[in-house]
Amino acid sequence: MATRQQVQLNVNGEVYDLEVPPKRLLLDVLRDDLGLTGARRGCEDGFCGACTVLLDGKAVHSCSVLAVRAAGHQVLTIEGLAQNGKLHPIQEAFIQHGAIQCGYCTPGMILAARALLDVNPHPMEQDVRWGLTGNLCRCTGYVKIVEAVLAAASGQ
């Protein structure tokens, strides 16, 4: 059957007209069709958060979203976070606080943090931990990640 479907995606402010099989995942479109490899393939089961992107400003697992479902919505990946060559304050904070080890979870962590701070600009530590529950770090670097998000929130 393998029909293809026209899909218009808005990713990081750019509009892409694509033809995809309906079963194609947003993650695969981002990585393989658009070359945006910041969204990482992790568990592919909606648990690890490595594939996190923002859909209309909300964190979603791009491994659990069909591309046809994302059509007509705004997708933000880590590649779209820096503006005019200047890193986003959360990205800067991750660097300043050493909140990166292997880096595999980092794009998802930063985007989940961005979604959290959009809703709650002045979170307590427990809010940050709760907001990042869907993002696993296998280098056990949570302490510095939480510090970085709190620092970004307080403008440090």
Partner: peptide, 9 residues
């Protein structure tokens, strides 16, 4: 339920 990303969709 699940994580924020699961609750969003």
């Amino acid at each position: 339920v699940g994580s924020p990303a699961v609750r969003n969709l």
